[in-house]
Design a protein around this nucleic acid. Structure first.
Lengths: 248, 248
DNA sequence: GACATTTAAATGCCAGACAATTAAGTGACA
DNA sequence: TGTCACTTAATTGTCTGGCATTTAAATGTC
């Protein structure tokens, strides 16, 4: 009697997966709202006619998706989690990174996607960026001038600059989506070794970009971004060629 | 002795979370590669000095993130999962939708983000779209002309058209990122009731957009998109006003 | 009234067992 | 020799029952 509408060929999914889905749907549909407490594990076990370990597996699944949080002690339990932008961005970043690394995406494809999306917010950033964003960008540029910086740190600073740019658009949804795109590039960028010459070239382009934003000159900012894209692609090609020459 | 480097105030995370993290890191770092089999639950339990239920909770966490899949039977077990674009997109969509609904984002903010990102791939789509994409877009336009379509179906068709546009850019990474942005708008769009007049207006704009892409005219496509954005915003404002007038 | 103590309700974790599933091995029979 | 049924072993899925730990509230004590 428990399996009513799965007559077709439901592949007999795990009970814990079914229960997780059931609760997830309740959250998504709004039947359970943020910070609301779920029944205790024992109660859920009874409701779904399964054992407590099975319920626990289901709850862990939901916890892994940041849909719930659990607290111990009396009056503890599982609570529907209010997903913050920050956490959502972090998750987006890991998911995007995973996709890019596990499917070994070509550098130029990822690069094209990233710059295309960044171009999407340049006009808005030119209008709306405030002193904080500009200062953050300039601070990163200063860091990038430090010749003792490792390539990895240089890369990280590059990412930070671009994230400041994205935030300058003043649209949190846009920031959320772009964070994944920008950060996920970092592992790929880390293939590149930055010479002194290429670093100063990048710093110059970053400066031009920041100046353009400060001047609210969207056109200039866009061409700086274009130049940055072609140069990044060039560096990527070189790195790839060097790798190939070195015998994989 | 088990808590060495968590001296600070590690909030004593769950064992299952720690184990999940440990395995996740191994996957992310490439120590475990796609389709590789993890040790059995019993072996993992021994390795980590925990019980099997605890290991299982950890594995369910990973399964919830699509990092592993499990098979039953002899020579079954947990396998590192090769994340496909399709699945990744689906996850991205649910995550984005959740973020937008749970934090009740303002319509105009989400709308701005979506159109900004879509504008990012218009130039590429104008260059690279092939007959398939154009046909898909025209098919959706035809559907949208059907007056018996419910508002929800009209909305779904709108989303389908835009996804075809995005795919026309021929960059899977871009498609991945934009899928979340475009689809997550659907619940918000469903607030809107489409009059006959607004439907025909939208169809006209969609047609102009598709024509421009077919003619590889990026400029024209961009202005069609701009017009679509302002009209969508207008409809959103109306819907919101009507709601407010109806007493919430 | 403030502080210490107890208590109850949860989650966290474990041990051991049995059921279900699946691929590989084994053997009988044509 | 080849094929089909059967057995076997490994592994995940699930259950039962229990103990440890944590936490807030209730209770008691000074």
């Amino acid at each position: 009697m428990p399996d009513n509408e799965k007559s077709a060929r439901a592949k007999t999914t795990d009970l814990s997966a079914q229960i997780a889905k059931s609760i997830r749907d309740a959250i998504l549909s709004g039947d359970l709202s943020a910070d609301e407490r779920l029944p205790s594990e024992a109660e859920l076990a009874e409701q779904f006619s399964v054992s407590r370990p099975t319920v626990r597996e289901a709850l862990k699944r939901l916890a892994a998706q940041s849909l719930i949080r659990t607290e111990r002690g009396a009056f503890g339990g599982a609570f529907v989690r209010r997903l913050s932008y920050k956490e959502a961005q972090a998750q987006n970043v890991t998911a995007s990174t995973l996709l890019l690394t596990i499917n070994d995406i070509r550098f130029d494809v990822a690069c094209e996607a990233r710059f295309a999306m960044e171009r999407a917010c340049i006009a808005l950033a030119a209008q709306r960026r405030d002193a904080t964003h500009l200062a953050a960008m300039r601070a990163e540029i200063d860091r990038q001038k430090d010749p003792t910086l490792t390539d990895e740190d240089f890369c990280a600073s590059d990412v930070a600059l671009h994230r400041a740019l994205v935030d300058g658009a003043g649209n949190p949804v846009l920031s959320y989506h772009l964070a994944g795109s920008v950060e996920a590039m970092q592992p790929l960028m880390n293939m590149i070794t930055f010479s002194t010459r290429s670093r100063s070239r990048i710093v110059a382009l970053h400066t031009a970009l920041t100046d353009a934003l400060e001047a609210a000159d969207a056109m200039a900012a866009e061409s700086a971004l274009d130049a940055l894209q072609s140069y990044t692609l060039e560096l990527g090609r070189d790195a790839l060629a060097k790798r190939a020459a070195a015998g994989r």
